[in-house]
């Protein structure tokens, strides 16, 4: 096994060639710590790492680093999400040092949803960098031991260099436009130094497979660990919402039909998700799954169990 870059559990699982599972934990829209404790209890021992979202959809929530520390105390391994929407390069690098110092060593680099979608749509955005530049910055901090400005990461001239050793994640949306450019953008993230990728949630398996074929043609699956994103459908309404309101997402009609035919929509949604996992495991280059069970963390254990992915390594 090659040397570990950050030594996180997620990195070990992926390096060892296990089919990895990550989940998502949305911090509360309040200072309520119990929300994190409750969600963490569902996920502990079930998944390899848990993404802690950063004010997702531009709605104010507890900070991802604070919630990440709380999740860590509950026995989870967090993946801290950092978006470029709210902080400039000074604040982000400062937060990376802080996160690492607090034991948070997986970071997912995102551009971030535009604030127009959130609950402070009149705010100013930052976007000093984009997600690819953020990946590059974390890579340089870890491997070159320098900040974006070129300064060495040490407290004074004589002090030792203490760099944040981060396992660097990025996102990929195989469904956005222009489709042909999506794999090029992934290649740019790989060039910037990304270690793992979590994709936008997948419903259109054919399109995802087409994208994975392009990924393999460029040999990218050998340079980066790709976790396929999944969001189990809770209801017909949710399926329609995802289809009609999320840019780039298509939910095929046959899933909608299946859901509308049965009494227990949630059970059917989970069944579909488990089938997807089984199909994804067969695709060359898919190193794991990223389960984004939005406000549905409690159902994650049964999905993972039904997919035959327990116990975790």
């Amino acid at each position: 096994m090659s040397e570990l870059k950050a030594g996180t559990n997620l990195e070990r699982v992926l390096q060892a060639g296990h089919f990895a599972i990550t989940a998502e934990l949305g911090p509360p829209k309040s200072a309520d710590v119990d929300v994190i404790k409750t969600k963490a209890a569902y996920l502990k021992g079930i998944v390899d790492a848990v993404n802690i979202t950063d004010n997702q959809t531009a709605i104010v929530r507890m900070s991802s680093i604070a919630a990440g520390v709380l999740a860590l105390k509950e026995g989870l391994e967090p993946v801290i999400q950092i978006t470029c929407r709210d902080r400039n390069r000074i604040a982000i690098q400062s937060d990376v040092l802080g996160a690492y110092a607090l034991g948070l060593k997986n970071i997912l680099c995102l551009t971030g949803d535009h604030q127009v979608f959130g609950n402070h749509s009149t705010s100013k955005n930052v976007f000093d960098m984009d997600s690819i530049q953020l990946i590059q910055a974390l890579k340089n901090m870890r491997d070159e031991k320098v900040f974006i400005c070129g300064d060495e990461i040490k407290n004074s001239k004589k002090a030792p260099v203490v760099e944040p050793r981060i396992f660097i994640g990025g996102a990929a949306n195989p469904f956005g436009d222009p489709f042909e450019f999506r794999v090029i953008r992934l290649a740019k993230k790989v060039n910037a130094g990304v270690d793992f990728i979590q994709t936008q949630c997948i419903y259109d398996m054919e399109r995802f497979e087409k994208w994975m074929k392009q990924v393999r043609e460029r040999g990218l699956h050998k340079k980066v660990k790709i976790l396929a994103g999944l969001t189990p459908l809770k209801s017909v309404g949710m399926a329609k919402y995802m289809r009609d309101n999320v840019a780039g997402l298509t939910v095929p009609d046959y899933y909608l039909e299946r859901l509308s035919k049965v009494e227990d929509k949630a059970a059917e949604g989970i069944k579909i998700c488990v089938e997807q996992i089984k199909r994804l495991r067969e695709i060359e280059g898919v190193a794991g799954i990223h389960l984004m069970a939005i406000e549905w963390e409690r159902r994650v254990p049964e999905i993972v169990e039904a997919a035959g992915l327990l116990p975790r390594p």
């Binding site: 436009d177 953008r185 780039g248």
Partner: peptide, 8 residues
């Protein structure tokens, strides 16, 4: 280094 995922 665009586009982001919101291009449709």
């Amino acid at each position: 280094n665009g586009p982001c995922g919101g291009s449709q």
